[in-house]
């Protein structure tokens, strides 16, 4: 039998387990959801998908981790339940999550998809950065040096 959490006592009745995992999910998503700032001009469901991708890329959501139900998510990040439904459908189509009947959805364990998510986010960030510095017309070596110092400085601080 497969249990998602090592800490789980297998002798616990099922309902306590479910409650426990719900609280766990609520706490986690509760903490991370504080920072969701939706903009008004992009479709909300795509913003939700992106939010999940970021969480996966940073490692806040780990492969195989259970994610909240659609209703729970809608409640947490204050979006329309239909939108949450659509976001989950989109993520399922992209292979980010998978859902078995009568079970909570889980983050995929497919390494290929997961590394692609990280790559895509990184590429997008670099593109934005490049577009904004290009107008300054700085030699690439100088720029890279600057990036190197800034990046390590910020990390240490």
């Amino acid at each position: 039998m497969y249990y998602p959490y090592n800490t789980l006592n297998v002798y616990e009745p099922l309902n306590t387990y479910t409650k426990k995992s719900c609280v766990y999910i609520q706490e986690r998503i509760g903490v991370v959801s504080m920072n969701v700032n939706f903009n008004n001009r992009d479709p909300v469901y795509l913003q939700v998908v992106r939010y999940f991708k970021e969480k996966i890329a940073i490692g806040d959501l780990v492969p195989g981790e259970e994610i909240p139900s659609r209703r729970e998510l809608a409640n947490r990040i204050k979006i329309n339940p239909n939108t949450a439904q659509r976001a989950y459908k989109e993520m399922e189509e992209q292979g980010l999550i998978h859902t078995e009947r009568n079970h909570p959805s889980k983050i995929t364990t497919d390494e290929k998809i997961l590394s692609k998510v990280r790559e895509a986010l990184l590429l997008e960030a670099v593109e934005t950065f490049v577009t904004s510095v290009r107008s300054i017309n700085v030699p690439v070596d100088e720029l890279l040096n600057l990036v190197r110092t800034k990046y390590t400085d910020d990390k240490e601080a």
Partner: peptide, 14 residues
């Protein structure tokens, strides 16, 4: 509302 954002990039207020 979601289609206005998706197809036209406009918020409801827009």
């Amino acid at each position: 509302a979601e289609e206005a954002r998706e197809n036209e990039g406009k918020s409801v207020v827009d």
